[in-house]
């Protein structure tokens, strides 16, 4: 599989398709309060938009979009976002992950829960996206073509 030159049609097609899949992934994450969706599904769609470029054009071009050594820190950042939300709520006087106590001014308790759920969904989406990319990157390492 060495020195296989990728077809320009495939390169152009994936480069055309990837941003739209990414936008749909963000839509699924942010619209998860009103329709089926959420962090897990949206994170998977974001990972698909990254993996499409990786499969079609190889590691060197894909590193221009998302650098492979950034995957592990971002996955840890997703866990830290989730855990930190719970920890902030605990420091402000509530239980762990009790969103009523989040320090966002001017909102009642139910709306605070709304925003708390949105924040942790973002953390979940970041972790799922980077972990799926990490698994693919490590599996094709050493067998790189193009």
């Amino acid at each position: 599989m060495t020195n296989r030159s990728p077809s320009p049609i495939i390169l152009l097609g994936t480069r055309f398709l990837s941003p739209y899949i990414m936008v749909f992934g963000f839509y699924v994450i942010f619209h998860g309060h009103y329709s089926p969706g959420g962090g897990f599904q949206g994170g998977t769609l974001l990972a698909v938009s990254l993996l499409l470029i990786r499969i079609a054009s190889g590691t060197q071009i894909a590193n221009l979009q998302f650098k492979d050594y950034l995957a592990t820190p971002y996955a840890a950042l997703g866990v830290v976002i989730y855990f930190g939300t719970g920890l902030v709520a605990m420091i402000m006087g509530g239980y762990f992950l009790d969103y009523e106590q989040l320090p966002i001014p001017g909102l009642e308790a139910a709306d605070l829960r709304y925003w708390g759920i949105l924040i942790i969904e973002l953390g979940i989406g970041l972790t799922v996206m980077t972990v799926l990319t990490l698994i693919y990157d490590n599996m094709v390492k050493g067998e790189d073509y193009a």
């Binding site: 897990f40 998977t44 799922v128 972990v131 799926l132 698994i135 599996m139």
Partner: peptide
């Protein structure tokens, strides 16, 4: 949650 965790453990 079980579906996504299943994919990760399959990896």
């Amino acid at each position: 949650t079980a579906i996504v965790v299943g994919v990760a453990t399959l990896g």
